[in-house]
Every structure is written in C-alpha cells, then in structure tokens.
Design a protein around this nucleic acid. Sequence first.
DNA 1: CGAGAACTGTCGTCGAGGTGACGATCGCAG
DNA 2: CTGCGATCGTCACCTCGACGACAGTTCTCG
Lengths: 242, 242
Amino acid sequence: MTGRIAAFPARGRRMETVDQQHLAWIARSFGRPDYLPLQPADVSLLSQVGEPVSKYPGTHLFKEGEEATSAYLIQTGEIDLYRIADGRRRVVARVGRGAVLGDMAMFGGGTYISSAQAVDNVRAFRLHRDRLIPELAKHPAVCMRWLVAGLRQLEETQRRVLQLMHKTVLAQVADLLVEESKDTGRVQLSQATIGTLLGASRQTVNEALARLRELKIVETGYRSIEVTDPETLHEVAAERIS
Amino acid sequence: MTGRIAAFPARGRRMETVDQQHLAWIARSFGRPDYLPLQPADVSLLSQVGEPVSKYPGTHLFKEGEEATSAYLIQTGEIDLYRIADGRRRVVARVGRGAVLGDMAMFGGGTYISSAQAVDNVRAFRLHRDRLIPELAKHPAVCMRWLVAGLRQLEETQRRVLQLMHKTVLAQVADLLVEESKDTGRVQLSQATIGTLLGASRQTVNEALARLRELKIVETGYRSIEVTDPETLHEVAAERIS
DNA sequence: CGAGAACTGTCGTCGAGGTGACGATCGCAG
DNA sequence: CTGCGATCGTCACCTCGACGACAGTTCTCG
C-alpha cells in the first residue's frame, strides 16, 4: 500500500538515485495520505523529478524574491512561511508534514512570494519545475494529491482569517494549545514564538497564559506549557469562557 | 456522452444539453485562463459532469453544513463566502470569475464549511461530485487548472492574513479601493459592505474614508466612492502615508 | 562553575478600533 | 410630493492589545 518500488522490479533497471525509504515517505506525506493512495508508478515519477533535501533549524528552503525553480514536499519537521514587511518578519503560516511549498510561485512562473525557513530538522523533497510540469500532466493521481494538499492549506488559512478577525488573543492562544498539545499534552514553544505565530506580542501571550494558569487549565515552565485540563481549554478556545 | 462541442462535429450525434457559449466560458474562466489552455476534450468533460446555474443577488449556491455534493466554478459575478460565528455573519472572502468553490468539502467528502451567497447576478457551473471525481483522474489538464485556481485563492487568503495582522484599517480600506477602482476609478459599495469585507465596523470605515477625503484622494457619495488620486492612494495602502 | 544568552513575569502607557446612539441625507415607491 | 428604509457622518465611551522597561529565572557552553 505504500509506494513500493520493489513491486516493479522488472522496470527498476538501475539503482534509484533516491532510496526506497524516501519513496515510502513521499507516498505517506503528500496531502492526505488516507485519501487517494498514490500508485507505485506515481511515486516513482516523483522520485525522478526531484531529490530529497535535509535542512537544519534556521536554514532556508527558499527566500522571498528568488526565482521559483522548485516546489517542496515536506516529509518531516516544521516550516515557517514568512514575509518581510516594513523590515519585520511576518509569519504567514507554520506548516508540517504533507504540506507543499512554493508551488504557487512555481506554477505562476515568477519568484517566491514568501520565505520558507526550517524550524526543526526538516526533511523535504525538492521537485524541479522544468522536470515536474510536463510529467504532472501524465499522472493525474499525483496532480489530485497536490490539489488536495493545496486545498487543505487553503482551509487552514481561511480558519486563520476568521480567528484573526474576531477572536481575542486568549482564545487564539487556547486554540493553538489545543492543536499543538493533542498528542503529548504539552507544547514546547517559547512564548515569543507563539506570539509570532499568532501575530500577537510576547507580552500579550504571556498575559493570556497567566489567565489560563489562573483558571488551572495549564502549567507553564521554561519553553514548555503543560495542558492539564483540555476540556476547559476547548471552552476557552470557543470563547465560551474567559 | 452529451455535450460534444462543435470542434468534434463528426462525433456530435445530438444537440448539446449545454450550449457552446457555456463551454467557451468554462475554458476562459477556470483558474488562470492564460495558463495551460484547456483542450476541447477537457472542456467537454466538464460539460458532462455538471450544468450551468444562475443565481440572483442574495441567493445561495450552498450553505454551511449542507452535504457537499457539488463544487462550483464561477463564470461571472461575485460571491461572498461566509460563515456564521456567534450568531454573526463573518465574510471569509469575496471571490469572482475563475474561482472554484466548495471543492474542499467536496474532496473531503463532508459538508460545506462555509456558505456561498451571490452578490451580483451570478453565473456558475455546478460540478457533481460523483460524476466529477472519476473523470478528473483521466483529465490531467483539468486537474492542473483546478490546482492553479486553488493556489490563487490560497495566495489571496495569505495576503489577507498579513493585512489583518499588521495593517491599519485605513491602509486596508485604501488597498480595497485600489483593487476595486482599477477599471472604473470608482467603487460602488456601501460603507457597511466594505466593513464586512474587511472585518471592520462601518464607523471605522467611515472614519478612514473621511481621512482619505481630507487628503483629497477620494470623493464620497451615496453608495459610491470616486478615486481622484490613485497615486497617493497606493502610498496610503502601503502605509507610507497616514 | 560562572557568565552571557534566552526566556518568563509584570508594569504603565497609549493608540486603534468596536459599540451604541443620534441626526442628516439620499433614493425609491406610492 | 411624501414617507420610509437605507445610508452617511460623527459623537462619547470602553476594551484589547502593542510597546517599552525591567527584574527574575533557566539554559548553555566555555
């Protein structure tokens, strides 16, 4: 069910430039893994038009204004997508596994409209414009996957618009905590980072956390927030409690 | 096998259910018309999985929470995409020609996550989920067009996020005026409408317009704003003047 | 283990913008 | 012409959150 190139041994003339594990990653990562599984042939297409890249925290996949020659499919790690406006860094979105970056600029044929910087150790797959586009037309499954990945990001961003317009920072912080603590019950981010993610100041985030602490919903520490009462946190995120 | 277009006369057995003009519209409307032209076969595919619909101002294409059975391609007119939160209407986006609506929900298989209401007289093309999806996989060009349409909307929405986070209402109003007045030099919207589009109150919009009037950049009237100094308006939108 | 960097916690101040209110205008239907 | 609903122009009031400042805490690395 994963992209097993081994299933096509007869066609594997030469050793892949990309190892199997990478291909399996791609198959799992792209858009919604549960939706419309990629066929081995599709995966191998991807392997031919790009190559895996690794990035250390703080390094860039691409920067605003550069010629858009590639798009990236994120396999692991998180990326900040940001732009510089009045000499200031504005985080547009933080994205993770399964997201596709730089595709807008790539299809449009211009330059990247935002910068992409690794937050974690990031593994990604770089897809070259010139090699990709002709192939894409021949592999509808890949194209549909891509489409779904894009639509997800759109949905995410629309939710963000609503939040920004009408929710208080307290609710936004609560919402972020709900999202980020889902698995571990803990969030490992500095308050300043949370601030930039939400477009709020560090101080205000601190204040919101103080409020949540007061309500016995979270406990805060150095670069770490422990969620002790997810139920109530939900309520706060929905602004039914303040 | 209905809806063959004139380019395929030999195979055109019987009269179209969808007239030619509609097909031409589709070809022009979908995503970026200048990019990756649709082939006649692709257009005819679209004609087979959907049908044209017309909507009067104020009527809905679909509503939040309804089962997502179709997506819509807008041919002419403008649509407000909105959601209801705390009993209040929140406009997520206003979209026009070439936009595709309801696709997220359709691919995801759930219910629509927002409502779509016609602002103008709207002509759109309704595409049925069940008939579309199997076909889509066979027509990569259509799929890529769709992809491009989605990415455009994503870009638009990301710009909106930046505006909301860091721009003053004055700059946002200026920006909207720049966009909307491009062709005619005039904007025919009530101040209240501008308010909901920007997520601001009517009063604040009025105040911003008063400021612009004071700067001799616009003249305001009943449901109408005349831009007299587009140059300076640009400057204000970029927050270089306030 | 010690110093500097990064982070947290908390003030006071200030501007932007939401809300409610009210009168003045405009445009349309009768 | 007249009345009514929609729209505009402006007020006073108040809340939210940005910003600067600074002390205290935790990490990290030589």
